[in-house]
Write a protein that binds this DNA or RNA. Structure first.
Lengths: 329, 329
DNA sequence: AAGCCGCATGCACATATGTGCAATGGGAGA
DNA sequence: TCTCCCATTGCACATATGTGCATGCGGCTT
């Protein structure tokens, strides 16, 4: 976060003070913006902008509580079948996968604030889901919170996708948190290089952070879906790798670590070269938030659930329904 | 709370479900009402009404967080000088006392939800401030919460003022709580009658509840202000009573129990006939929320603070400023 | 001291939201 | 089964809110 500079202090806190006051008048006292403008001796349009600012900067928080006696049927069933707390994001069935992703990411960004707090270590993966989320984060002030990158990103070839560092920075900015980058490629070419790297003290420091995560946040990869995930388009994997994955019965990945439909991940060769945290490490985090959208990811989701990687799931309605309805969807 | 009747269940929970979904779409996904109407196959105006319902029924909660490093100057100073957590309600200086009361009550009603929770006993006084609040309560579902009337109300002579029972019922409805009425006059004529009554088992049960309150909620009376409080207009007190109060140096009351500027209340004769809880009982409640508006109540507020009756104060800005600025305001 | 830059402001217009009213339809009771 | 009642709906209009644009004010650089 940018510290106030001399001479700027007044302006910055003045704006926040105004925003706070306008928010009180608008949300607590139900005054019209016109009336507020009058009270604050400014124009109505300035108040409109001030209130937008108040919302966007987390001064105003809007939350939705479903009555305890009326949980969403889907969320209830997911809890019963999979022992996972679900947030089902309503999305019309006819929505495109792009819409779906955007809407889930938007909701997820706003829900995320509930999980993040001071004095926490938060692990974050990268991918198209996380990128979409990063665009909509609502800031929340925290102290002593640290964000740690879960897996290497290497270089990207495709355009229009943010570098992982930019993505992490957005999360860091939103929570006033320090960011620990993980500057390695997504996959090493040689398992031995990875092992050597893992012995480096700077790497160990980061791995240590990962093992002490309070919250892990990730999307899911699904290598064989019709619309392959981010990782599978970036040129990280070669044809031979795909064939190996296919042979190993892989259905998905979390932070570039692969698993099968039954949740197992032993003996998957590619994992020896991957940079994401071993599932045994990941599972140490008491809260593991997974954001998923699109039915293409159902197989991947089932696998991740079977592997016990998820404690909190944010998912679009159609996918949630498909998850519950049939085991062979 | 009205229980669902057969055949009504579907309708009621259907409406709540719709409201919940609409709220998600509106507040989490930023869809326009038009778009939501389309998704839910209804008209835009129905969505507008549905969202109003969602807000009014507490499904949607809007809260305002002031950044920890920027507390309101006034709130900060009140905390330092009086060891009380203040919520300062912004109100323009030129507002009338009626406006002031309305706006403070509206804000207070919305803040109240933060203090109320399941398994609590909540004591509530009555008066114009509480009446105004009762009109704006935002429902919040609780279990096993009990509301107990702090002081008797007797009969009222003036019109346009709700009977205490109606007032209490509104609080009870808002929190789904059971209400314990206290069917006695505000003041007994004879102290002996009061003592006798206090020995009754039904009374003792209620007094016992009062002594176990988790939250007490009250306004302040100020007998000698230009605009006298509710109690002083209702015909509860006679001229001789006023003169006695004046002689005793009384500056205010909480739930019809009087105190002096220094917070003392010993030897005030009228208190022997009053039905409100003794301050020693009141102070057992870990949270004691006081709602005050209007500079006329400053002397009364100072006294209540001196008596240590308040832990949380909701007050209009002008009064807060006057409280801080000069000791002889 | 002058000039430049960037940001905040208010206006006017474009959208979005709130609400009185008449019409509709489902359900309780006769 | 019929009728009446009341709650809910959508329309059309009234308000309220959002936003592109031109303007002007400070602050910083040259």
């Amino acid at each position: 976060m940018i510290e106030n500079e001399p001479g700027e202090t007044e302006t910055v806190s003045g704006k926040t003070r105004d925003a706070l006051r306008a928010a009180h008048l608008y949300y607590m006292q139900d005054l019209t913006m016109d009336a507020i403008a009058h009270e604050l001796h400014t124009s109505r349009s300035s108040i409109s902008r001030l209130l937008s600012h108040a919302r966007a900067s987390g001064l105003v928080e809007i939350s939705i509580h479903s009555p305890l006696d009326l949980p969403s049927r889907l969320e209830q069933e997911i809890l019963e079948h999979h022992e996972v707390h679900a947030h089902v994001v309503p999305v019309p069935d006819h929505a495109s996968d792009v819409d779906r992703l955007d809407r889930v990411a938007l909701s997820a960004a706003r829900i995320l604030g509930q999980y993040v707090d001071s004095n926490q270590t938060i692990g974050i993966a990268w991918g198209s889901t996380m990128t979409a989320m990063s665009r909509h984060l609502v800031p929340k002030a925290t102290h002593n919170t640290e964000i740690v990158q879960l897996n290497g990103a290497g270089n990207l070839r495709t355009t229009g996708i943010l570098y992982a560092s930019e993505l992490l920075r957005r999360f860091g900015d939103a929570f006033g948190a320090h960011v620990q980058q993980f500057p390695v490629p997504a996959f090493f070419d040689d398992p031995e290089t990875r092992r050597a790297f893992w012995r480096e003290r700077s790497t160990r420091r980061l791995l240590d952070l990962q093992s002490r995560m309070d919250v892990a946040l990730f999307g899911l990869g699904s290598p064989f879906a019709e619309v392959p995930s981010h990782v599978y388009q970036g040129g990280y994997l070669e044809r031979a790798d795909y064939e190996a994955l296919s042979r190993d019965g892989v259905v998905g990945d979390v932070a570039t670590v692969f698993y099968r439909a039954d949740g197992s991940s032993d003996g998957i060769a590619l994992n020896e070269r991957a940079t994401g945290p071993d599932f045994s490490v990941l599972r140490r985090a008491p809260r593991r938030v997974c954001v998923v959208s699109g039915r293409a990811k159902i197989a991947s989701l089932r696998g991740a659930l079977a592997a016990g990687l998820i404690t909190d799931l944010i998912v679009d309605e159609g996918t949630a329904r498909a998850l519950i309805e049939s085991r062979d969807g």
